[in-house]
Lab assay of single mutants.
Amino acid sequence: SGNANTETLPSGWEQRKDPHGRTYYVDHNTRTTTWERPQPLPPGWERR
């Protein structure tokens, strides 16, 4: 039932692989990409 990797990503993020097989992350909220895995927001924090 779903990929465990995507469940731990913050809302709006997606994990992808480039043509060389390297994993990167897409932030659909800001339309940016990063090599660093995004950290889920700490409990009690809200994204503004």
Rank of each mutant, 00 (worst) to 15 (best):
23 T>G: 02
1 S>Y: 05
47 R>T: 15
19 P>M: 03
9 L>Q: 09
29 N>T: 08
33 T>V: 05
36 E>T: 12
12 G>D: 06
11 S>Q: 12
14 E>L: 03
17 K>S: 11
26 V>I: 15
1 S>I: 09
8 T>F: 07
36 E>H: 15
13 W>M: 00
42 P>Q: 10
23 T>H: 04
4 A>C: 11
32 T>M: 10
3 N>L: 08
39 Q>Y: 04
42 P>D: 14
27 D>S: 02
29 N>V: 09
21 G>P: 01
45 W>M: 14
10 P>L: 00
37 R>L: 07
11 S>P: 11
37 R>V: 08
39 Q>M: 11
35 W>E: 06
48 R>E: 15
12 G>N: 11
23 T>S: 10
12 G>E: 02
32 T>C: 10
21 G>W: 00
47 R>V: 13
25 Y>K: 03
14 E>I: 02
10 P>F: 01
27 D>L: 01
46 E>D: 13
25 Y>E: 03
22 R>P: 03
40 P>S: 12
37 R>M: 03
30 T>A: 07
37 R>D: 00
23 T>W: 03
42 P>N: 10
8 T>D: 14
21 G>T: 01
47 R>F: 06
34 T>Q: 07
46 E>C: 10
17 K>I: 07
25 Y>A: 03
12 G>V: 00
35 W>H: 07
44 G>A: 12
8 T>A: 09
33 T>F: 00
45 W>A: 15
28 H>K: 08
9 L>R: 04
45 W>P: 15
27 D>K: 01
25 Y>N: 01
8 T>V: 12
1 S>R: 00
30 T>W: 01
33 T>S: 10
10 P>Q: 04
29 N>H: 08
27 D>I: 00
22 R>V: 11
17 K>D: 06
12 G>L: 02
5 N>E: 00
20 H>S: 13
44 G>K: 10
23 T>E: 04
28 H>P: 01
39 Q>A: 14
25 Y>S: 03
23 T>Y: 09
38 P>W: 00
38 P>E: 01
7 E>F: 08
4 A>F: 14
44 G>R: 07
27 D>W: 00
33 T>P: 00
37 R>G: 05
27 D>Y: 00
32 T>W: 01
48 R>I: 10
33 T>H: 02
14 E>V: 05
8 T>L: 11
37 R>P: 11
41 L>M: 13
24 Y>D: 02
7 E>C: 08
14 E>G: 02
24 Y>C: 03
13 W>P: 06
2 G>A: 13
